[in-house]
Amino acid sequence: MTSADTSREIPWDLSFLRVGTAVTAALTAVAAPLAGVLGGWDDALAVLVGAAVVTSFFAVSGVVIAWAGRYGEAFTLPAALGSFLVKVLVLATVLQALPADGWADRRTLAWTVIAGALLWSGVQQRWVWTRRLYYVQPPAPPT
């Protein structure tokens, strides 16, 4: 069995998406009302939008990288970099399209995206540190 055959049999684990989404939802449930009370409801809406943007960006990256990994390990880095470039361009376009005095506070949205990206990075780090990840596929158990 070649490494390409093995990589197709091993599913990519995307369970960090469930954990990251749960942590983001819990923090957003606290941060959005707090931002609404302290800064106004446009800040609360910006927190909600920022959390949704970060969650969707990490989900898209995870799915794209897992999809590329099914076809070969060598495709994962180009897939990650390509999806990152597309997401940055989309985010920049969306932020530029928002009016300065629009329905969501751009500064709060930007800080929420930064905080969310750091949060998701921490979730992914913990997920990797607590998983058994093998450099090579372990042998099958004896039958």
Rank of each mutant, 00 (worst) to 15 (best):
M1H: 08
M1A: 12
T2K: 01
T6R: 14
T6C: 05
S7Q: 12
R8L: 11
E9C: 06
I10A: 11
I10S: 07
P11W: 08
P11D: 15
P11N: 08
W12C: 06
W12S: 12
D13F: 08
D13Q: 06
D13R: 09
L14E: 05
L14Q: 05
S15R: 10
F16R: 03
F16L: 08
R18C: 08
R18V: 14
V19P: 01
G20T: 03
A25I: 10
L27D: 04
T28F: 06
T28P: 00
A31E: 06
A32H: 02
L34T: 14
L34K: 04
L34P: 02
L34Q: 07
G36E: 04
L38I: 09
G39H: 11
G39V: 03
W41A: 11
D42E: 15
D42Q: 13
D42C: 01
D43M: 10
A44Q: 02
A46I: 07
V47H: 02
V47R: 01
V49C: 07
V49G: 01
A51R: 00
A52H: 02
T55A: 09
T55P: 00
F58I: 00
A59W: 12
A59Y: 03
G62Y: 03
V63I: 14
I65E: 05
A66M: 02
W67H: 02
W67V: 00
G69P: 00
G69F: 01
R70G: 05
R70W: 00
G72P: 00
A74M: 03
F75M: 09
F75C: 02
T76S: 11
P78W: 07
A80G: 08
A80L: 10
G82N: 06
G82D: 08
L85W: 09
L89M: 13
V90H: 04
L91M: 09
A92G: 13
T93W: 14
L95D: 03
L98I: 14
L98M: 14
P99V: 13
G102E: 13
A104T: 13
D105G: 09
R106Y: 05
R107K: 11
T108Y: 04
T108M: 15
L109C: 06
A110E: 15
W111R: 07
I114P: 02
A115T: 10
A115H: 06
G116K: 03
A117Y: 06
L119G: 06
W120T: 06
S121P: 01
G122V: 10
G122L: 13
G122M: 12
Q124E: 15
R126A: 14
W127N: 08
W127P: 01
W127R: 10
W129R: 13
W129P: 00
R132P: 01
R132A: 14
L133M: 12
Q137F: 07
P139D: 15
P139A: 15
